[in-house]
Computed example of a mutant assay.
Amino acid sequence: MTGRPYSDAVAQLVRAQKPSAGTPAYSRFVNRRIGRYLAAGAFLAGRTPNQVSLSSGFCSLLGIVAIATLEPSVPLALLVTALLVLGYALDSADGQLARLRGGGSPLGEWLDHMIDCVKITLLHSAVLISFYRFDAFSNELVFLIPLAYLCVSAVLFFGLILIDQLRRRHGGAQANVRGDSVLKSLLIAPTDYGVLCLVFLTFAWPTVFTFLYGVLLAANLLFLVAAIAKWYQEMAALQPDRAGVSS
C-alpha cells in the first residue's frame, strides 16, 4: 500500500495517457476517464494490472451469463449494462495501472488479449442463446444477426492483433499516424465495444435492441471491409523478412 494521494495518482495517469488518435469516441472520452479513476484506486490499494484484468473479465462474464440465462427485463438490462460497462472500464484500467507502475509485461498483454477474445466470443453467443431461449422473435432468421456479429468481431479482433505484430516485425508504419481527429473518433464510434455495452440498455425491448444491435453489426462489417482493403495494401508494400519466410 502506498501513501500517494489519490489525486496525485490520477494526475500522473493523465500525463501517461496513450495517444488518442484513432480511438473511438466512447473509449476516448468516457472509458479511459473511468478507467483512470479505477486504476488510481487500484494503485493505492496495491493491486497488480493482472488482478485488474481478471476483475474486468469477471465482471464481463457475470453480465454475459445473465444475458444467456435470465429473461429480458428492465432490471436485467440495467444490470447487464452496468456489468459490461464496468468490465470495459477495468479493461482500460489495467493498462493504465501498468504504466503507473512503470510498464507492462508480456504476461499482462497476453492475459488482456485472451480475456478480450473470450469476452467478444461469449457476448454474441449469449445474445443468440437469449433469442433462442426466450422466443423473442418468430422469425428464426434473426438468429443470424448475433452469429454474423460474432464472426465479424472475431475476424476484426484477429486482424487488428495480426496487423500490429506484422508492422512491428517488418518495420511498417504504425497505426493512427494521421493526427488526433475528434471527427474520426465520432465516425468510428459504432465500432467501439463501449457503444455495444450501452445498447444493452434496450435489452428489455427485443425489437429495439435487435435494430440497434443490427445497426452496429452493419457498421462493424463496413469498417472491417475497409480495414481489410487498407491492411492488404499496407502489407503488400512491406518487404518480406527473408530470414523468417516459410513456404
Rank of each mutant, 00 (worst) to 15 (best):
I67V: 11
G103S: 09
L150W: 13
I129N: 01
L90E: 06
V80P: 10
A148L: 15
D94S: 13
G108S: 10
P106W: 13
Y149D: 09
L84Y: 12
G108F: 11
E71N: 07
C117L: 14
T81W: 03
G87A: 06
G102F: 12
T121V: 05
L147C: 05
L128N: 06
L79S: 14
L156Q: 14
T69L: 09
L123I: 00
L150P: 07
D91P: 04
V127W: 01
S105D: 13
L123C: 07
S130W: 07
L156M: 15
S130K: 00
E109L: 13
I129V: 15
L97T: 04
A89L: 09
L79H: 08
Q96K: 08
L83Y: 01
S73Y: 07
A82P: 11
V152P: 03
S130G: 10
L156N: 14
P106K: 12
A89H: 04
G95C: 12
A93I: 03
L83N: 00
L128A: 15
D116W: 02
Q96Y: 00
F137Y: 13
L78D: 03
I129R: 06
S73L: 05
S125V: 14
V142K: 04
A148W: 08
K119V: 10
S138M: 09
P72Y: 07
D112T: 05
L144S: 11
K119P: 03
M114D: 07
Y132G: 10
R101W: 00
T81D: 06
P106S: 12
D116K: 02
L111R: 07
G95L: 06
C151E: 10
D112I: 11
D116S: 08
D116I: 03
S92V: 06
L97C: 10
V142I: 15
A93Y: 03
E140W: 13
V127G: 00
I120M: 09
F131V: 10
S73Q: 02
A98M: 05
L141R: 14
Y132Q: 11
G95I: 06
I120H: 05
L76F: 04
N139I: 01
N139K: 02
Y132E: 12
L147E: 04
V118D: 02
L76P: 11
L128D: 05
L122Y: 07
E140K: 05
V152I: 14
T81P: 02
L122R: 05
P75L: 12
A77M: 02
T69F: 08
F134T: 05
G102C: 14
A126V: 01
A77R: 02
S105W: 13
V74Y: 00
V155K: 02
Y149G: 06
